[in-house]
Each structure stands twice: as structure tokens, then as C-alpha cells.
Nucleic acid binder design. Structure first.
Lengths: 198, 198
DNA sequence: AACTGTACTTACTGATAGGTAAGTTGTCAA
DNA sequence: TTGACAACTTACCTATCAGTAAGTACAGTT
């Protein structure tokens, strides 16, 4: 009851900045973009996030927390590896359906060299999280006989993540919604799908 | 003998802009960056490329010409599909080794929505070229019994291009040179490599 | 010797960027 | 009732952005 109606400007800023990041990239959005979208003044953003670096870091940290909760929920539902991968495909596809977004690791890695060091460090951690998750699912799925792919789990994981990241970007260029579905289908085949998934 | 010593400033500008594009992205480099790198004034760049859009378009058009020549040379050497794919891997790996560049389609598609329409159109054509080439090599290789992959050639082609594009970006984040090699290895396996390539 | 075009430089413009200092308003606790 | 703090706005700063107009230096042509 205490902070039920506390102003959620901070969250609104993060949400807006997140959309601008995934549609325009970090270099190509400004505090004014956020301010005008929210109907507040430029300095209001600086009140919550003193520098653009602070804002950028906060966005990535929120992604990491979200992804952690997301993967924990998967475990709670005790889904099989196929189902988990399908959920990951969904996650990816859903980016594009929201204003043609691409995935965070995609934007951040594309302009990595111009990001402030603090954001670079956070991006690294985020990508590590993603690859670690995917590697784990793949290894489990292989052990339990769900997947039958050639090569090491981690290499396969990186390949899958790279294909989805690149696929999301190419989808935007060719504005072809099926492109990502085709990539997902290819990945399923290469994981040894023999009629299992939809 | 006529234009042997003509000033090649235009080419130098394109070269410098190209490096800045692949390392910093289009939004994150300026005419001043190029000018100071070449030891000329800002307006000198505007003389050769009136607007930044003109410059951007020229860079992409040069990529398209280059790639066309590159693929034509492959044909002249009458290499087999495996060799052609290996050359393409090389091409990709070589980007990163030059100041941690990523591939043009990677940068351009990541910031696609903030590119001027003229550049978007040119990017589309460029990506079409790349996919068309890869699809052709894959289809030929399949027909001639070099490759044995599951699914349609074009889908496989897009998957490979996406994986390389994403892999190049992830390589930069994790500063791991082997990452791309691992992706190339995965692709070889999935093309049905049974000891053929190195 | 005069003219022409190329390849610039100098000097500027208005717009926008990220950021800051100082003031204003409303809420809540002592 | 006062004080304190959170959440802003107003007003401003400097730097940089892409872009332009006018001038200059020089090579080749007539």
C-alpha cells in the first residue's frame, strides 16, 4: 500500500529508451527523444539517469534480470529442451513484431566499439548469460536424447544465437516475416528434429 | 598516362569512411572524423560527397561492385563449391582482423531504421546479392553432390549468412577469435562435411 | 595572356547533442 | 508549522553535427 501510486517515470523512461535502442540504436537516440515521447523535459531524464551511460547500463542490467527470471520460469515449468528452444524462438520472433525491433545483443554488438566502457562490460555479461543458457539447454537435450546435433554444445549454442541475431537484422532489411521462421526451421532440423516440434 | 597521378582523395575518403562505418557504424561517424584522418578540411568531403547520404550510398555501391567482381573471379577459377564457401568464410574472418570490423550488412541492418531511404534501398540490393550468391553455391553444391544439407537452399543460405553476420558481431563483444572459426566449423558439418575441407 | 574547371580552404550557419545549476512544487514526517 | 526530500522545470552551457557560400590556388586549354 505504501508505494502503490509512486511515480513510475523511471520505468517509463527505461521502457521508452529500450524501444529507441532496439529500433534506432544507442548512438541514434537522444534524451530529447525520450523526453518528448513522455511529455517531460530533457532534464527530467537526467534526474533519473545522470548520464546516457547510466541509462544504457540500466537498460542492459534490466535485460539480464529479465532473462534470468525467464529462464528460471522455464525450469519451474519443467519443460523439455524442445519446448525451451521453442520459447526462445518465440522470444526472438516477438522482437520484430514490436516495431521491427532487433534483439539487444544485436544492437549492442553492432555498435560495440562506440559504446562507453561500462556498457561494453555489461553487454559482455549479458551475452555470456545468453550463451550459457543456450549451451546448458543444448547439453541437457543432447544427454537426454532429445537433440542429436554434431559438435560441441557451446559451439552449437553460439551458432544458433548468432543465426537468430543476424536473422532478426536481415528480417528488418528484407522486411520478410518468414525469414526468421525459416531460420528457426533450419535450426530445428539441425538439432535433429524428426517430427517432434510443430 | 593521362590520369595516372590524379588526386585519389575521393578513394581515400571512401576507404576511411568504410573503416569508420564498419568499426563505429554510420550514425556514429562524422565528416570531421574523415577529414581529420586525411588531413583535409570538412568541406573537402562535402565537395566529393555533398551529403552524408551520398557518401553512404557510394560505400554500399562499391561493396556491391566488389562482391560482384569477387564472385566472378570465383567462377573464372572454376573452384568447387567447398572452396567457394571456404573463401567466403575467409572473407568474413578477415573483417574482424582489420580493426575488429564487422560485415557491412551487419552494421547497415542493425541501424537500418535510421538510415536514409536511399541507403536502405541500396542495402536491400546488397543483401539480395549476397543471399543470391550463397543460394546459388549451395544449390550447385547440392546438385553436384558436394553438399548434403537438409531443407531448401535459400533457407540454408540465409541461415549461414545470418550466422556469420551475428557471429562477427559476437566475436567483437567476446573478443574471441575462435568464435568465428567455430561457427565456420559448425556450418561445414551441417553442409555434410565428411572430412572434405581443412 | 586570358579563361576555365578542379580541388580544395576559410568562415560561417542553424540544429541538436549531452549535461548542469538553480529554482519550483507537492508530499510527508516531526 | 516547519523542514526535508523527491521529482521535477527553466534556463543555460559547450561541443559537435551536417551543410553552405565565397574565395583561392593551380593545371590545362585556347
Amino acid at each position: 500500500m505504501s508505494n502503490a501510486n509512486k511515480p513510475d517515470t523511471r520505468k517509463l523512461i527505461l521502457d521508452t529508451a529500450e524501444e529507441l535502442l532496439l529500433t534506432r540504436s544507442f548512438s541514434a537516440f537522444s534524451y530529447s527523444n525520450i523526453a518528448s515521447a513522455l511529455g517531460v523535459k530533457n532534464a527530467a531524464i537526467h534526474y533519473h539517469f545522470p548520464s546516457k551511460t547510466d541509462l544504457g547500463v540500466a537498460i542492459i542490467q534490466r535485460y539480464r534480470r529479465r532473462f534470468k527470471r525467464w529462464s528460471e520460469q522455464q525450469e519451474m515449468l519443467s519443460a523439455d529442451p524442445w519446448q525451451k528452444m521453442e520459447w526462445y524462438f518465440d522470444l526472438t520472433v516477438r522482437y520484430y513484431s514490436q516495431n521491427q525491433r532487433i534483439c539487444p545483443s544485436g544492437v549492442l554488438s553492432a555498435e560495440f566499439l562506440v559504446l562507453p566502457p561500462e556498457m561494453q562490460a555489461e553487454t559482455r555479461l549479458f551475452v555470456d548469460d545468453l550463451i550459457a543458457w543456450c549451451t546448458r539447454i543444448l547439453a541437457e537435450g543432447q544427454q537426454q536424447g532429445y537433440f542429436s546435433f554434431a559438435g560441441v554444445a557451446r559451439e552449437k549454442a553460439v551458432n544458433i544465437m548468432a543465426a537468430l541475431q543476424g536473422g532478426l537484422q536481415l528480417t528488418r532489411v528484407l522486411s520478410s516475416g518468414e525469414l526468421l521462421d525459416n531460420i528457426a526451421r533450419q535450426i530445428r532440423i539441425e538439432l535433429g528434429a524428426v517430427g517432434q516440434p510443430v
